[in-house]
Nucleic acid binder design. Structure first.
Lengths: 219, 219
DNA sequence: TAGATTGTTAATCGATTAACAATC
DNA sequence: TAGATTGTTAATCGATTAACAATC
């Protein structure tokens, strides 16, 4: 049975990308003492189409909204969190304790999204056995063995591009099911492994292109 | 005249996202002594559709490919770089010298994509006047004045979510035209300013959701 | 009741893919 | 020539938006 590339668990990737945006927005609103929210006001604030907002919410909410009243904020937050699986935390390992890896190891916000980095790997002997953000750095050669034994499901790749495929292969061999890739390179993985690319080069290119166009058009 | 949201300089955002991927791939191939490349082989390696590759390349290349031979790698690289405006470097400032900000300040790969970070701002007095990655940290209150005087076009936001909109407002007031936002929050900006969100929460949510589904389905 | 809002069905729009003629 | 490959036109597919009935 072939799985559609753009679908994850029955909803479109586009919707999936908007859910965390809604989640963050609703948490903000919740702090401001608001109890309910309407799709048109959410859409206006987030610059989205109101029907799109309603359809997205319909994918996750059990009780739905009430005409003239909108949705209950607390309920929506809970529904989104359950839908996205925030509450069943997955353990992750990080490969490559360079500056970006260090930033991710010290970042506090991941657990909110159901991901906990439990350790890191690096081939630089000077980093091995030190701690960053409270997480111990192990030698790269122990990656496969340790990940397998600890039944780790998520690998985060922050090594340079030339080392990324090798890191990826070891993670896959260890049984990792999802890879969060920060190296600007296309990774080859078996079909059952999800690769989520965080490609900064893409964003930069888009910015650069936009400014290039803006200049040409004399804006 | 209204500009289509999903178009940047006449090409679709999807194509724009793939161009840096092609660029990196072609540079790899170029190093391996290859001189030409065909759309089918690129498509196979990058797991894309071959017609899509051809169409994307047709958007940027002047001379096109030759039947039976494919495209000249060096030429494609040059065309993509010119199209994306890699060669006219834009100066950028970074706001928020925390762990992520530090990672970006020390990262070497940006200039390749036409973006040079020239300085950073932080409201923490202990960081002010120190250097990270060779770039000087200025007090946050000087942001608007300095950016305006130096005619900076790109702002990179790596402050916490609660401080992001304020940082954004100052950047916009200083005349910045494009913002690269790492805070997990929707920024309100005037229409002429481009916001490029690097939302790690979105990626994490997708990973988390994928694993959640995989478990449910017993994979 | 009137008006705001929801949820759904139908129309539109854009991006992807298939089909195919042209060409080296 | 035969076969690989390009480039383009047409068909398909999915996501967005418009229209509208239902409801509080």
């Amino acid at each position: 049975m072939e799985e559609k590339r753009h679908m994850v668990g029955g909803i479109s990737r586009k919707t999936l990308e908007r859910l965390p945006v809604y989640h963050h927005y609703l948490e903000q609103k919740g702090k401001e003492k608001a109890e309910t929210i309407s799709a048109p006001s959410m859409a206006a604030d987030l610059k989205l189409n109101e029907v799109q907002v309603r359809k997205d919410l319909a994918m996750v909410t059990k009780t739905g909204g009430k005409p003239k009243m909108g949705y209950l904020i607390r309920e929506l937050i809970r529904d989104i969190e359950e839908f996205l699986g925030f509450h069943n935390t997955n353990q992750a390992v990080l490969v490559g304790a360079g500056s970006l890896g260090k930033a991710l190891l010290t970042y506090k916000g991941f657990e909110q999204y159901g991901v906990e980095i439990v350790m890191a790997f690096d081939s630089d002997g000077r980093k091995v056995n030190t701690k960053i953000g409270g997480k111990l750095i192990f030698p790269f050669v122990k990656l496969e063995n340790l990940c397998q034994r600890m039944n780790i499901h998520i690998g985060i790749i922050t090594v340079p591009a030339y080392a990324a495929q090798e890191a990826c292969d070891h993670l896959v061999a260890a049984g990792v099911k999802a890879i969060w890739n920060f190296a600007p390179i296309h990774l080859s993985v078996p079909d059952h492994v999800l690769v989520q690319n965080e490609n900064m080069a893409v964003s930069l290119s888009a910015l650069s292109k936009y400014l290039y166009e803006a200049e040409k058009e004399g804006r």
